[in-house]
Nucleic acid binder design. Structure first.
Lengths: 114, 114
DNA sequence: GCCAATATGTTGGTCCCCTATGCATACACT
DNA sequence: AGTGTATGCATAGGGGACCAACATATTGGC
């Protein structure tokens, strides 16, 4: 998987892994990597600005968790985030359908048993 | 479909529509639009530089078609292009599998009958 | 004391596509 | 003859998004 692959789909990934409960940045990286079968390895320089942006947009809310442990900024999905996630899923299926139908057309090239 | 959607997948689209025969730039735009069900509308400022780049890479070869008509630069897949196209298709399926498994995990969220 | 793992963040750079623009030819309509 | 529309190729400039690299701090093992 080329390094740049998630371009344009990062927001959906972040929202999706937070659907099942709040996580902090480092754990989000691990969650995405795990759920993608080890394929997607996000960088800190990628997700921290993205998380801040999503919080600015009101799709996430954050809080510091410091009790007994190392300080962690935990992000949780807001209602708006849940709604946006649903939209991202729809957009994803439309996107894959569009690209897929060009890349692998259902109309086969001529020449196989007419 | 957001304007920027094809980012990172343009090469595959161009190679794919040229698989069934040579086309010129304007026809490539029409072919992509048609095969995507009208969803993907590439711009000339997008594809002409891309076609030149793919030719530089040896994946396409071009020739001017001027006989009796308006001048057209027709692009055709080379053997290397055909090979790259196969790779793009593999990469595409890996890509969709990776993003899809994060966006729509097969492991459902806990709380539905065990 | 040192190093690895955990954890959050910023900075600079690059790539890639889009918007906007320009130019040229063919054809229909008036 | 002039105008408008469709066809056709091409470049310039801009911006967004992600990455690589770096900076900092704590925890725990050796």
């Amino acid at each position: 998987m080329k390094a740049d692959a998630v371009r344009g789909h990062l927001d959906g990934l972040l929202l999706a892994v937070l659907e099942q409960g709040p996580l902090h940045g480092y754990a989000i990286i691990a969650a995405v990597q795990h759920r993608s079968g080890g394929v997607l390895e996000l960088r800190t320089g990628t997700i921290y600005p993205a998380l801040q942006r999503l919080e600015r947009l009101g799709l996430l809310s954050s809080s510091w968790e410091s009790s007994g442990e190392r300080r962690r900024r935990c992000y949780a999905l807001t209602e708006a985030g849940r709604h946006t996630l649903a939209g991202e899923r729809t957009a994803w299926s439309e996107f894959t359908a569009a690209i897929g139908s060009v890349l692998n057309p259902t109309t086969p090239p001529p020449g196989l048993a007419t």
